[in-house]
Nucleic acid binder design. Structure first.
Length: 295
DNA sequence: AAGTGAACCTGAAGGC
DNA sequence: TGCCTTCAGGTTCACT
């Protein structure tokens, strides 16, 4: 499920239950997710205190004492939930799978007063993974080393995108999904950002760059739309798809603000547009857009 | 070199 | 009801 806003929401939800607390016990209910879990995973992290919860693109980073970090990716269907001794207190992004059969990894946390909480990783499809890396060398971690800038940071600019788009003659939709260009966007937020900036998903990326390599008209709008949609989604607690009611009533309501994603056949919400949202397939994935106002 | 498609895996939803 | 097909928020690897 998770694109950047969802992972950031998970990070914020877990932080109060992990930061400053000690991993008392790590339970592995199977030896692998998408990849084998780290060798001696439990032995290497049990007894260590969590220094800080961080995030890079769609990866969660749990920084531990002793310069060791757990890197976690939620794949398509991964989620964390928190249980205290008393009751479940939160369900962080997780639309499906209440099914304990897919509880694969359990962190048992202890605070200084002896309070306990269980942080449970559930992932039916097992496209997620966990790994260990030295905290000081995270930038060299294979999945991190080639990542582009975060859409929330200062390094994302129209000029930067112009430089990256210049040589790309593939559809803008595919280029925005490339984590080496921008890190953290996924299918939903790419569709939404393109709609907000009035750019058709099939337009070639290099058409947004002038012959001299400058940002063409529209690229500035796209840059702003990316920043805006990501910021709004984080503020809304991400998006929760195909879910019933949020039991805790608090997390993930950005799906109500989708303008095109999963709205095939519905009227375009752009003022005065009058178009109809359409679904096409690009590189094997659904793209939702309005052919009337996205050019 | 770059771009597309298949593969990884399970479950939900829709068609007949 | 049951069976079959399609689809799902991601990433990587193997092909043109």
């Amino acid at each position: 499920m998770p694109e950047l806003p969802e992972v950031e929401t998970v990070r914020r939800g877990l932080a109060p239950f992990m930061e400053g607390r000690t991993i008392r016990k790590l339970t592995l209910n199977r030896p692998d997710l998408r990849f084998p879990l780290p060798k001696d995973f439990s032995a290497r992290i049990e007894g260590r205190k969590v220094v800080r919860m961080s995030r890079r693109a769609k990866y969660l980073v749990i920084m531990l004492e002793g310069e060791l970090s757990v890197i976690a990716h939620l794949g398509m269907s991964g989620s964390f939930r928190i249980e205290t001794m008393a009751e479940a207190v939160g369900d962080f992004h997780h639309p499906r799978s209440k099914d304990a059969a897919h509880d694969h990894v359990i962190f048992q946390m202890a605070d200084e007063q002896g309070g306990e909480a269980r942080i449970i990783y559930n992932d039916p499809r097992r496209f997620g993974f966990m790994d260990l890396a030295e905290t000081g060398a995270l930038d060299l971690y294979p999945s991190f080393s080639a990542l582009g800038p975060e859409p929330t940071g200062n390094s994302l600019s129209a000029d930067y995108l112009a430089e990256r788009f210049r040589s790309k003659k593939s559809p803008i939709k595919s280029v925005l999904l490339d984590q080496r260009v921008i890190a953290g966007l996924g299918n939903i937020y790419v569709c939404e950002a393109l709609h907000r900036s009035g750019i058709g998903p099939e337009r070639l990326a290099n058409s947004l760059v002038t012959p001299t390599g400058r940002a063409a008209r529209g690229l500035e709008d796209l840059t702003g739309a990316i920043r805006q949609v990501i910021a709004e989604a984080i503020e809304a607690g991400g998006s929760t798809l195909r879910d019933h009611i949020q039991t805790d009533g608090s997390l993930g309501y950005f799906q109500h603000r989708f303008r095109v994603y999963d709205r095939e056949g519905e009227a375009c919400v752009t003022p005065g547009c009058g178009g109809t949202v359409s679904r096409i397939v690009q590189s094997g994935r659904s793209t939702f857009h309005c052919p009337a106002c996205q050019k």
